[in-house]
Design a protein around this nucleic acid. Structure first.
Lengths: 210, 210
DNA sequence: ACTTGTGAAGCATTTCACAGCC
DNA sequence: GGCTGTGAAATGCTTCACAAGT
C-alpha cells in the first residue's frame, strides 16, 4: 500500500465527515477535488486500492464511503495512547481539542523529572517513566508519543517498546531505532520551518537579482 | 529540486551539528548512514544537487559542509515568524525550546478572542489578529504559523498573506488556499495518528488470524 | 451526459554500478 | 583500500485515456 495514498486517506475522511455533517448524500471525485485540491484521478486510484465504492454516473455514497474508510483505518474503535514527556509539548498534546471527537484517547503521561512526577496535569497525574512498562499493562495503549528533548528520545522510545506499544509518534528531532514491526512517524516542527526557510529563499533571490 | 531531498537536508544538518559538537573533522556518507538510516548513495546524490563537497577516499569536511548547507537553506540569518492562535498549541510553540539555538524567532502572537488580546504570553503580548497586516510592517516576519481551529484556518491564512509572509506552517487540519508564490507546509497531528492507527492494524490482523 | 475503475504511459525518486580520485 | 560523484537501471507514484456502467 503506497504511503502517499495512506496519507491522503486522512484528507478524504476529513472531507467526508464534513460532507456528512452538511447532509450531502453523494459526492463525485471531481467534487472532492474542488475541496481538497487533490486530482480526481488520484482520488479514484487511491480508493480503488480498497475496493469499488463508487457508482459510475453517480459518484460515491458519502455515508457508505465514510464508514468503509473509517473501518479500514481502524478508527471505529478506541485507540489509546500514552505520552512520554510532560513539558510544554506533552501538556499541549494532552489538552489538545482535536482528539475530542476522535477515537484517540490519551490514557497516561510520563516523565523522568522527579519534581513533575505525581503532579496533576489536565485530567491525569504525571507518572514515573520507569513505571511505563508496568503501568501500560493496565492502560493498554497501542500508541506511544515521544515528547521529550532529542537527547532523551531513544530512551523514551525504548521504554515505549518495552511497554508494548505498536506505533510511535515522535516529536523529537532525532532518529529513533525500534524493532521493524513497530510503526514510527516523525513530526519535526524545526524541520518544517527549515524547509520553509529554503522556499522563502527563491523570493529573496528574485529581489536580490534586480 | 526534489522535495524529498529538501526534507532530508534538515536531517543532514542535524547530524552535522552533532558531529561538529563532538569535534569530528571528517565524515563519510557511510558514517552518516549509520546515524541517520538514510542510504549513503542517497546522501551523496542529495548533496550532489548543490555542488561537490566531498573528497574521494576521505569523505566530507564536517565544518565546511555544515556551513554550506546552512547557507543553502538560509539558516545563517534570522528568520522571524508570527503565530496566529494563542491557544494551547500557539502557547506551546511560543515556549518551545527547540528554537533557542536556531535562526527562528517568534516575534508576535495574535488571536481574535477579545478576552485574550492584551494578555501577556511568555515574552510577548497577545495582539488582535486584525492588526496583523499593520503590525507586521514593524515585525517583519516572513513566516506565519497557523495555530487555530480548522474552521478559522483559511481566515488566519488570508490575514497572514495580507501581512506579507512568504511561507506558512499550518497546524490546522484543513486545506488552506494561498497565492502560489507562498510556500505552505502542513503539520497535522491527527493525520499522523490516523496513519499510525492503520499501521497498527496489520499487527492486530496477525493476531486475529490465529 | 456523467462518472467510475483501470491498464498504460509518463514522470519522479531511489538504487545500482562503476569510473575516477585520495 | 576507501570514498565520492554520476550516468543508467529499477522502482514507485501520478496522470492520462478510455471502456464500461448508470
Amino acid at each position: 500500500m503506497p504511503e502517499p495514498t495512506l496519507a491522503r486517506l486522512s484528507h478524504y475522511l476529513r472531507c467526508l465527515r464534513q460532507l456528512a455533517a452538511e447532509g450531502v448524500q453523494t459526492v463525485s471525485s471531481a467534487a472532492m477535488e474542488a475541496r481538497l485540491s487533490i486530482p480526481s484521478t488520484q482520488i479514484r486510484k487511491d480508493l480503488s486500492h480498497f475496493g469499488e465504492f463508487g457508482r459510475p454516473g453517480i459518484g460515491y455514497d458519502v455515508q457508505h464511503l465514510l464508514e468503509h474508510l473509517t473501518e479500514i483505518m481502524r478508527l471505529d474503535r478506541e485507540q489509546r495512547a500514552v505520552i512520554v514527556g510532560a513539558g510544554n509539548l506533552g501538556s499541549a498534546l494532552l489538552g489538545y481539542g482535536g482528539f475530542v471527537n476522535s477515537p484517540f484517547r490519551i490514557v497516561g503521561i510520563f516523565d523522568n523529572n522527579f519534581s513533575k512526577i505525581g503532579r496533576p496535569l489536565w485530567n491525569l497525574e504525571i507518572q514515573d517513566v520507569h513505571r511505563l512498562p508496568e503501568l501500560n499493562k493496565e492502560l493498554g495503549a497501542d500508541i506511544g508519543i515521544v515528547a521529550v528533548p532529542a537527547a532523551a528520545a531513544q530512551e523514551a522510545a525504548d521504554m515505549l517498546v518495552e511497554a508494548g506499544v505498536r506505533a510511535i509518534l515522535n516529536f523529537a528531532p532525532a532518529v529513533i531505532n525500534v524493532p521493524k514491526d513497530i510503526a514510527v512517524r516523525d513530526v519535526d516542527v524545526t524541520r518544517e520551518m527549515e524547509i520553509l526557510s529554503f522556499h522563502i529563499k527563491r523570493a529573496d533571490d528574485a529581489e536580490e537579482a534586480e
